[in-house]
Nucleic acid binder design. Sequence first.
DNA 1: ATTAGCACTCGTTTATGGGGAGTGCTAAAT
DNA 2: ATTTAGCACTCCCCATAAACGAGTGCTAAT
Lengths: 342, 342
Amino acid sequence: MLTERQLRILQVIVDDFIQTAQPIGSRAISNKQDVAYSAATIRNDMAELEQFGLIEKTHTSSGRIPSEKGYRFYVDHLLTPFHLSRQDTSAIKQTFSTNIRQMEEVVQQSAALLSELTNYTSIILGPEMLETKLKHIQILTLSDFSAVMILVTDTGHVEHKSFRIPDGMDHAEMEKVVNILNDRLAGVPLMMVPGRLKSEVQELLKQHTVHFDTMFAYLRSFMETEQPLKLYFGGKTNILMQPDFQDLNKLRSLYTMIEEEGETIARLLKGEQNGLHVSIGTENKLSAMQDCSFVTASYTADGIHMGTVALLGPTRMEYSRVMSLMHVLTNKLTSAYQDWQK
Amino acid sequence: MLTERQLRILQVIVDDFIQTAQPIGSRAISNKQDVAYSAATIRNDMAELEQFGLIEKTHTSSGRIPSEKGYRFYVDHLLTPFHLSRQDTSAIKQTFSTNIRQMEEVVQQSAALLSELTNYTSIILGPEMLETKLKHIQILTLSDFSAVMILVTDTGHVEHKSFRIPDGMDHAEMEKVVNILNDRLAGVPLMMVPGRLKSEVQELLKQHTVHFDTMFAYLRSFMETEQPLKLYFGGKTNILMQPDFQDLNKLRSLYTMIEEEGETIARLLKGEQNGLHVSIGTENKLSAMQDCSFVTASYTADGIHMGTVALLGPTRMEYSRVMSLMHVLTNKLTSAYQDWQK
DNA sequence: ATTAGCACTCGTTTATGGGGAGTGCTAAAT
DNA sequence: ATTTAGCACTCCCCATAAACGAGTGCTAAT
C-alpha cells in the first residue's frame, strides 16, 4: 500500500507535470513550498511509486513523469474538489444568460466556451432526435422545373432538399402529394418515418398520383438518408497547439482524426451516456487518441439522455478544472433544455 | 535574355523539383534522358539562371531549387499544354454524371473530387446569392411557446430559425405577420431584404400587430445576420501531408488558417472573379499561405460570376495538371449550373 | 525513519574531423 | 566561340568524442 506521503508526492508530480509538461526531480519536489521532506526521502518514495507503475522516467536519470496508470490513480483518488474561478463561472453564466431561441445555438456556444476556457478541443454531440417527431412537410415550387421540400420537426429542426419536378407534374398533383405526406407522416417520430413511408404512403401515392415512380424515389432518398449526427467542434486547433504534440506524425494523425473521423467520434459519444467519464491514453480505442485524454459528460432532459459533451486534451490534462467545468456545463445544458421545452 | 537551352533547363529543374521535392544538381540534369548537354554546360547556364533570380541554392554547394520567381516564370511561359489522364477525365465525368438535384451537393462533390485527384486542399466558394431572391416566408408553430420561421430563396436555399412566441400572441396575429412579410418581401433580392424590412415592413407591422416590439426584434436579428458565405473544403488534411511542411509551426499556422480564417479566405475568393489565377508564395496576402500556391478559377452562369474554385498546395505544385483539372471542372460546374436552372 | 553524501548514468551540448554532393573556375577540346 | 573535362573549394551531414549537468540509487550517518 501507498503511504500518505507517497500519495502526496504522486499528487505533486502529477500537478506539476500538468502545469509544466516537464519531468520533475526529487530536488524540485523537495523545494516546493508545501513539501517538507528532503530530496532523498522523496527519491525513496519515488522509487516505490515507480515500482507500482504510477510514475516513469523518460530515461535512466531524469525526473519522473506520471504514467498512464498514474493519471488514472490521480483521477480516481487524488482529485481535490475544485472550485471554479470567478472568471470561469461568470463566463459560463454569460453564455447561458441570453434568451434561448435555438437549442443548436446554445450547444454550439457551449462547445466554443468549453474549448476557450480550457484550450483543449471540445466536441459536443447535439440533442438526439430519437424522440423528435415530424411536425410538418411542405413543398415549395421554385420554378417550373424545380422545387424544394422542407421538413420541420417539433424541436424546430428544419431539413430541406431541392429537387427537379418530374416532367408534366402539375401543381394540383404536387399538392396532393403534400397532403398525403402530411396526413400520414405528421406527428410520426423521425426514426419511424422511413418505415411509415413504405408501409402507408407508398400505396396511397401509387393510387393518387401519376408520377409515382420518380416522386417516390425522391422521397426515399430524402427521408432515408440517415439523420446526420450533429457534432459540434470547438477549438479544433487548440489541441494541436499543446506542447505535448511535437511529433509531426502524431500531429498529422490527430488532425486527420478530427477532420475525418467524425462518424467514429459520434458513435463513441453516443455510447457514453452516464455521468462524467474519463478515458486516459490507451484506454481510448481510437489509435490517434492514444496520447490524449478524453472526458465525456452527458446531459439529459427529464432524465432521458439528450446529448454528450466531450473534451479532448493531452493526457496531461487539467483534470480537476475540466471535470468541474463539464459538470457545471452539462447541468446548465440540461436545465437550458428543460427551459426551452417549457 | 535567356537562351533556348536555359529555358529548357529551368523547365527541367522545376519539373523535377515538383516531383521529388529535392534540390537537383547539374550532373543529375545532364543524366536525364532528354538532356544532351554536359554537366559543366548546365552549370554555366544554372549560374546565369540564378543571376536572373529564377533558381536558388539551399546552401553554397547544393543543387538548385526553383525560386518563387522561377515558378512564376514557369507558370507564365513554360507550361506545356497538358492533357489529362484517362483516370482524371473519367473521374470528373462520373462526378457530374448523376442527375443534379441539389446544386450545393454538386459543389461539395467537386471540392471533394478536386482534392482527391490532386492531394491538395480544395476550397470552393458556393454560388453567390447576390442575385437570389426571397421566394417565400413561413412561420410554423411548434408548440404554444415556440415557432420556427423559414425562408426559402428562389435557388432552393432554405434558412430557418426557431424562436419563442411572444406571450399572448395568437395564431391570427402570427398569420397577419406572415402575410405582411410575404406581401412585402417575396421576390426581393436577399441583399435588399434588411433595407426593405426597415423601410416598408416596419410601419405596417406597427400598425397591424400588437406585439410589434418583440416580433420586429426577432425579424431583424434573423434577417440581418449576414448571409454566411458558403465555403466548401475538400481534403483539409491533404496539404498538411505534403513533405514540404516539415516545420511544426508552419503546420500549425496553416491549420489554424484553414480552420479559422474561413471568412478571410471567402473574401479572398470573392475577389477572384476572372478565369484562372495563380498566386505563388509571397504573392499571397495571408501570411500562413506564403509557402503555398493558391490557384483560383471562377465559374459562371450566363456570363455572370457564380462562385470560385480554389486549390491550396505547396509552391511546388503540379501546376500543369492542376490548371487543366480546374479548367475542366469550372466548365463542368458552369454547364451544370446552367442545366440546373434550365 | 529520515537525510546527507557521493558515485554513476545518460541526455544535451559543443567541438572535431572525415565523406560526399555540388559548385565555380580555368584550361583544353571541339 | 561553345562546349566540356578537370580540379580545388564549400558546406551540409554524420559519426565520434568530450565536457557538463540534472537526477538517480545506494550507503552511511543522524
